[in-house]
């Protein structure tokens, strides 16, 4: 089985979010970038398929050269090879077109992406790859098993979960649950050394039309201070929620 894991390179959650160039660009100054958490869960599941079922695992990112340390980290965790599509990731649709092209060229059976990336929160790339490559698609995937070309998966739904069956080729929008946090791997020295020898191929983009464009960013207005209510005066809390906030 050939697996492609899509890795989006995102600011660590604790980063300060600021914008530059007249609020049109994300300010990367002082920001630490990480593998998108949803992708890290997916990559770890891919490692299981590699170790237990002999799968071959490639990681891919659409982005500039600055994302290479993130891809190297994925190689150090255990992926066999990495691909970087050399174009800035400006819009989910065009990222999906690049990735779909990588999928077609490489003939991957399984594409693992994340439910959403924590920067732009588009939640669209995996579904679009599935649509563009005519593959089956399971979103919010929290458990994934594959035997031959038959797939059993569990996905989260509003208010519960459901078990589904399908077949390869398949695209996954994964999240926590596909593996647990305790399964995540911190690259060790050997992994880091080996990662340096593994291939990281840079390819050119196929089509650079964009369907959507970011015009401007804005930060929410600063929030007013919390209104404290004494624990001896809970009637006041109910009054505030009813009369002032109008939520009960």
């Amino acid at each position: 089985m050939k697996i492609l894991v899509c890795i989006s390179h995102v600011p660590d959650t604790t980063s300060k979010i600021n914008f530059t160039d007249g609020d049109t660009k994300f300010d990367t100054n002082g920001v630490q970038f990480v593998i998108n958490p949803n992708d890290e869960f997916g990559l770890t599941r891919a490692m299981w398929f590699k170790e237990k079922q002999g799968a071959n695992v490639t990681v891919v990112n659409v982005g500039g050269a600055e994302t290479e340390p993130t891809l190297r980290k994925a190689l150090a965790i255990g992926a066999d090879a990495a691909i970087r599509v050399n174009t800035p990731a400006t819009d989910g649709f065009s990222v999906a077109k690049q990735l779909a092209n990588v999928v077609k060229e490489g003939g991957y059976d399984l594409v693992i992406a994340g439910r959403e990336s924590i920067d732009y929160n588009g939640g669209m790339v995996p579904g679009m790859i599935a649509g563009l490559t005519n593959a089956n698609f399971i979103n919010n995937c929290i458990k994934l098993d594959i035997e031959g070309s038959s797939v059993t998966a569990v996905r989260e739904i509003d208010g519960g979960k459901e078990t589904v069956s399908t077949s390869l080729p398949l695209v996954i929008g994964g999240q926590k649950g596909i593996v647990e946090e305790s399964d995540l791997r911190i690259p060790n020295m050997r992994g880091i050394m080996m990662a340096r020898q593994k291939p990281l191929t840079v390819v050119d983009p196929v089509d650079t039309n964009t369907e959507t464009a970011s015009v401007k960013f804005e930060k929410p207005a600063p929030k007013g201070a919390v209104k404290l209510v004494s624990p001896d005066n809970l009637d006041e809390l109910i009054r505030l929620l009813h009369n002032e906030a109008k939520v009960i």
Binding site: A96, G122, G123, M124, G127, A130, G131, N140, D158, T212
Partner: peptide, 23 residues
Amino acid sequence: SSANSKYLAPLLAIFLNAGYASN
């Protein structure tokens, strides 16, 4: 933005060749 609508939206975007804005 229900889980179901977020699931189908990117497929629909491809079927209609439409740009999609979420949230």
